[in-house]
């Protein structure tokens, strides 16, 4: 196989998309299934260890996982020639296909989730962690907003993954 072989690069980008996606959704589920439900059970004096040491590290891999997943995904869709048709959910495509609609719905759900990470969760988490100055009331509001956006993403991740797997393995 030549190094310039299109399929080799396409497969390489797909691998990058999936490995970044696991990094992203793995952390999302860690926050929602493990960290957040456990926090109230942790003695008050130990909670700063989570907020000051574990949370910033986890958020680093979480947000960059999201960025690389989106980037690799868009490149992959472009390389495979269905980027525009998928964005339009296959509507008006020259050869409409259920796979295009499926990957399109998955792409839109993933993009909404990526937006939530970078423009809702992170700015609010920065207030919670003290990176951005905020009053105690603002910190409480930020914690609630970030938590809700994180729950929205957990909810959307379930149909999003269905669409991704559907599109890849329908035939």
């Amino acid at each position: 196989m030549e190094l310039s072989d299109f399929n080799w690069w396409s497969q390489f980008i797909r691998w990058g998309h999936i490995i970044s996606g696991i990094m992203w959704i793995g952390h999302l589920w860690y926050f929602n299934f493990t960290q957040t439900p456990t926090m109230p059970k942790i003695p008050t004096e130990l909670r700063p260890a989570v907020v000051r040491f574990i949370l910033p590290e986890a958020l680093f891999w979480f947000r960059w996982g999201a960025m690389f997943t989106l980037g690799f995904g868009l490149i992959l869709a472009y390389m495979n020639g269905y980027l525009i048709d998928a964005i339009k959910l296959g509507i008006g495509a020259p050869s409409p296909h259920t796979k295009t609609t499926a990957i399109g719905i998955g792409m839109w759900l993933g993009t909404i989730m990526w937006f939530n990470v970078w423009f809702i969760i992170m700015p609010n988490q920065n207030k919670v962690m003290g990176v951005t100055p905020a009053t105690p009331d603002e910190v409480n509001a930020a914690r609630r907003t970030a938590g809700l956006a994180s729950r929205v993403n957990t909810m959307l991740s379930i149909p999003m993954l269905y669409c991704m797997v559907f599109a890849a393995h329908y035939y």
Binding site: N32, I105, M155, Y162, F166
Partner: peptide, 30 residues
């Protein structure tokens, strides 16, 4: 919405319901 997503179980159930909705749409247009 906030009440539903306030619980982890509610979040997961909502995710499964949305998945069924998507699956039905994809089945209908096939």
């Amino acid at each position: 919405m906030e009440k539903l997503l306030g619980s982890l179980a509610g979040t997961v159930i909502a995710g499964f319901v949305l998945t069924v909705v998507v699956a039905v749409i994809l089945h209908a247009i096939h």
